[in-house]
Computed example of a mutant assay.
Amino acid sequence: MQFNTKLIPFAIAMAFAGSASAQEIIKIGHVGPVSGPSSHLGKDNENGARMAIEDLNAKNPQINGKPVKFVLQAEDDASDPKQGTTVAQKLVDSHVNGVVGHLNSGTSIPASKIYSDAGIPQVSPATTQTKYTQQGFKTTFRIVANDAKLGGTLGAYAVNKLGAKKIAVIDDRTAYGQGVKDEFVKGATKAKPGVQIVAKEFTTDKATDFNAILTTIKAKNPDLVFFGGMDSVGGPLLRQMKALGINAKYMGGDGLCTDALPRLSGDNAPESVVTCAEAGGVSPELQKNMDDFRARYKKKYNQEVQLYAPYVYDSVMVIAQAMTDAKSSDPAKYLPYLANIKYQGVTGLIAFDSKGDIKDGSLTLFTYRNGVKTKTEVIK
C-alpha cells in the first residue's frame, strides 16, 4: 500500500520503525452510526479510522522499543443513545486502549461517562454539544469547535452578513440539534438585539413530513430559517420548504453541511439559499495536506469525504502520538500525555484546553454552487 508519509509526524514514524515480531495488540475502538439515516456519515468516519490504522501499521510501529499492531474495533450506535451506551460498554469489556467517537452528541455524551468510569480516553471527531466537555471527565476530548462557537458564529453571520431580520428556528430534539439551535439564537440576538425570532418549532431526527410546522412558519414570513439537526432530516425539510413557497435563506450547522445535502433536498441547494458551517477547517497554508488526504480517501474508497473522516483520522493519530510520548499504550499512563498533546495533523494543530476542548478551534462556512458544497471562508 502506498500513502503520503508526510501525514504521519516524524516522531511517530521513527518511534514506530521496527520488527513485526511478537507484536503487542493495541485496540482502538471507533463508534458511529453505520446504520440508520446518518449511516453515510458514520461510514465516512469509520473509513477515516481505518485509513489511520492502516497508515500506522504500514510503518511497522514500535512503542518503547517493542513492536505493536493497531487493531480497529468498529461498533455501530445507529445514532441511538441506548445503543450508544451498549456498544460503549462492549468496548470497555473488550479492553480497548482508546476510543474515537461518537459522531452524534446524543450518543457521545451518555457514552462518555462509561469511558470515564473505565479510565479509557475518548477523542470525538464530531461531537459539538457544549455539555460533552463540561462534565468534569478527564478522559473526554474533542478536536472540533463546540456548539457555542458553531451556533454563535452562524447566528452573528446570519444577521450581520446575510441581513436576516425575521428568523424561524427548527430543531430535531436531539442533544446536538437543540444545542446548536440555542447557540444560534444567542449569537443572532447578541449580534443584533432587534432581530426577531418569529417562530420556534421542532421535529424529530426520524421525521419525513414537515408540512404542519412549515405552514406555521410560512405565515410568519421569515427571511431566514435555521435548522438544528442532521442532513437526513434537513435535506427533505429544505425540499418541502421550497414546495410550500418559503423563499427564505436556509442555515444549519455541521450536521447539515454535507456533500449529500443537494441529493437529500432533491438537488435543491442553490448558492442563494444555503449557508452552513463545519466545526473545523484548515487555513490556506494547510490546505494541501487536506487535499492530499481527500485524494487518498477517494482513491481508496471510490467516494468523496462526506464530512469528518479527516478529523477521525487525526483523532486516531493523536491517540497514537500520546502513546508514543508516554512509551505505553496503558490508558492511565498515556492519558496525561494526551491532555498535553501538541500534534500537527491533517486538520491543523491539535491541542486541548483544561476541559478537553480543542484550542483555537476553526469553523468553515460553506454554500452550494451547482449542487457542489463550496467553501466560502474559514473563521478562527
Rank of each mutant, 00 (worst) to 15 (best):
A269R: 10
C257T: 04
G252S: 08
Q306N: 13
A248R: 01
I350M: 08
A295K: 12
N340F: 05
V274N: 05
V346Y: 09
M317I: 02
P284L: 09
A326V: 06
Y250N: 05
Y301R: 00
V318A: 15
I319G: 00
L261E: 06
E271G: 10
Y311V: 00
C276P: 01
Y343K: 06
A320E: 07
T347H: 08
L256P: 10
S265R: 08
K288I: 12
V316T: 05
Y337E: 12
Y343Q: 06
A322R: 01
N370I: 04
D292T: 12
S328P: 05
L363I: 07
L338T: 00
A332P: 08
A320L: 01
D353L: 01
G266D: 03
V282T: 14
G345H: 03
Y250P: 10
D360K: 14
F293W: 01
K299H: 06
P310Q: 10
G281L: 05
Q344M: 11
A260T: 14
Q344N: 15
Y313W: 12
D360L: 08
Q303M: 06
F352Y: 13
Y313N: 03
S354G: 09
S265L: 04
V282N: 11
E271F: 07
E271Q: 15
G255V: 07
S354D: 14
K342E: 11
K300W: 00
A248S: 11
T374W: 06
C257A: 08
V282Y: 11
L335I: 02
G371W: 12
V274P: 02
D292E: 15
A269S: 15
T324S: 14
D353N: 15
S328Q: 13
I358P: 09
N268L: 15
